[in-house]
Amino acid sequence: MTPRRWFRLLLGMGLYGGAFLVACAVGGLGYFHFANPRDTCASCHEMTGFYSVWAGSAHRTVSCRACHGGSLTLDVHALESHVDRIVRHFTGDPSKPIHLLEKHVLGLHESCSRCHPQAFADWQASQHSTTYARIFLDPEHNRTASPTNDCLRCHGMFLRDDISLLVARPPDTTGSWMLRDPLRATQPVIPCLACHQIHAPAAAMQAAGFYDHREHAHIPAYLLPLASIRQGERAVKVSRDPRQRVCMQCHAPSAAHQLGTSDDRTPAGVHEGLSCLDCHGAHAHSAAASCNTCHPADSHCGIEVQKMDTTFLSTKSAHNVHTVACLDCHPQGIPARAQLKN
């Protein structure tokens, strides 16, 4: 054969061979992308647990790729972690627990908004949509208490790094606190997955869960502790609403569990025993409109509660809605029950 023919032959082999290999890869990945996860992702034992939980969840009709993206991905982390897992599988190394990176969690968070636009909009309007910049760069806060790893328990819980890799101290007394990665500034620190376990069993009550930063796992609300709260020696009656246990993970009292200490907002006084969710919407947290649900019909004193100063922001308010008790207005003793104004 002439060199030219050789060249043509090689070129042809390269062309058709290359096309064949590319087609194989696309075919294989395409199969993984579109086939039932039972036959793809979940055929690895590392994934079977996740799969079976998902298969029993309210989201079982939503395919893996709808939230996670499929195998036709160019995400370097995903490829790298899959290869790592395969190597570990065949070398008999214990597989590392599977965790989503924060960027994946934020990606999922965006996916939630596609099907749950109202809840998402409510969350956006609430204080829980706060960002890294607002939480970690507040100079007033950082002057009294510098950021620590424990902050990540309730803010930025999907981060895996030491706090020093997130926030940089001011280089001198006049400088300001900075995020090491400026792109984080507008990212939410309490995304949907902070309080929701997407793969949770279908029963509505169990969709709420708390993502435990230390354990790198969601704990469903019904498994979270029902904290005992004390007012002096007296045990405060705490609502048994399991969803409230999620709130209490962060809106928590100091270790001795005295009412109103630290970030505790457990209602006592006339509102004792109510659940957070009785007044605060699950996503929109404003409670201003909720008084109407019970008042004036259920008012003990017959006054118009909407006109009271029921602020909770001022802990000094005598009418702090979380703690207001009959004795706050009737220090001399509680009169006989007032007539309801109808």
Binding site: A23, G27, G30, Y31, D39
Partner: peptide
């Protein structure tokens, strides 16, 4: 045309062998 044929065969082989491998992985687990 030839490339198209090669592509279709390739994709079928890729998808088929992946499916077979995944099935094998599941049963041999």
């Amino acid at each position: 045309l030839k490339l198209g044929v090669v592509g279709i065969i390739g994709a079928a082989v890729g998808a088929g062998s992946t499916a077979a491998f995944a099935r094998l992985a599941r049963t041999a687990q």
